[in-house]
Write a protein that binds this DNA or RNA. Structure first.
Lengths: 158, 158
DNA sequence: GATCTCCGTTCAGATTTCGAACTCAGGTTC
DNA sequence: GAACCTGAGTTCGAAATCTGAACGGAGATC
């Protein structure tokens, strides 16, 4: 399989990764969720080549994850804002943050704290079942093909 | 920044992506969570070059995400099992699945259904605040530097 | 003893990715 | 008005990565 065939796979992971599974894209999204909007800031914070920033931002705009909004004329300049589809990626970033906090935080603890505005607490993300509201771990889940799935090895993790 | 400097960043996203942010690694983990254990099966399902599979599996073992367990002698053969650290990645995969299901599922719906064994329902993952238990979206979160963070642009998403 | 399986390794060549320098359009400074 | 700055890219050669295909080897099977 080539990388650009991923989007055709009958798998939501593959389809998602075709868009965001790139080396730097998730780092750009991380910054977008921290409020970064402008080309220069993305580039400076990541310290990667400008061509990479250009290409990733264009892809994300083409996919509807980011939106280009002018913030001045003469010369015209744009900012990159998360769309609703982009905001839907928040759980992905939070899940990654959570894993990093848990397994790679130094002695000083997590480098970034997140406060839940509604309750005012510093928190971490917990995944629960949409139906019963109980926390879900890998061992609680049984996968089976839905419509349009390809046959393959399914089992239980662990 | 080079890819291999990511692990040194004071950021949990960067540190996590240094391990799992690779092109094929998350696809391998997807299969691991679906019960795939053996080299040949990973390789056949992904249809990528054997050297890539070798390299990714070795990295994941070195990082303690997968564990090599012998399942026979003469000749010695190993299976790759998710460790506890690996199982902790479940929310990451589920968050990615969720985004894909929401934005890229065809008319037939999601290609894979997941049942929560505890309640018996097909479900999708919902992220809630660890403190108050309410669902969390991007707009509900305020980030601020913790100990050891680097100064940078922080704001609110959207 | 020829072939098969599972699990890799090796290597040349194609493809991608990257860094550094350049461009361009307009503003600012003196 | 000349020199310089800024924000947002583009270009291009070098470096890294990936692919496909062959090879190895340790035992099992025919």
């Amino acid at each position: 399989m080539k990388w650009d065939e991923l989007a055709q796979e009958p798998c939501s992971v593959a389809r998602s990764l075709a868009v965001i599974g790139d080396r730097w894209t998730l780092m750009i999204l991380r910054d977008a969720f921290l409020g970064v909007r402008r080309f220069e800031v993305f580039q400076a914070r990541l310290g990667i080549s400008r061509s990479i920033v250009t290409e990733r931002l264009n892809t994300l705009v083409a996919e509807g994850v980011l939106e280009r909004r002018p913030y001045q004329d003469r010369p015209i300049r744009h900012e990159y804002h998360l769309t609703d589809k982009g905001l839907d990626l928040h759980p992905v970033i939070m899940a990654i943050v959570d894993w990093g906090d848990r397994h790679y935080a130094g002695e000083a603890g997590p480098p970034i704290l997140r406060r839940h505005k509604a309750c005012g607490c510093d928190f971490h993300a917990v995944q629960v079942c949409s139906e019963c509201g109980e926390p879900v771990t890998a061992r609680d889940v049984e996968a089976r093909p839905g419509l349009g799935a390809r046959a393959g090895a399914l089992g239980s993790p662990g």
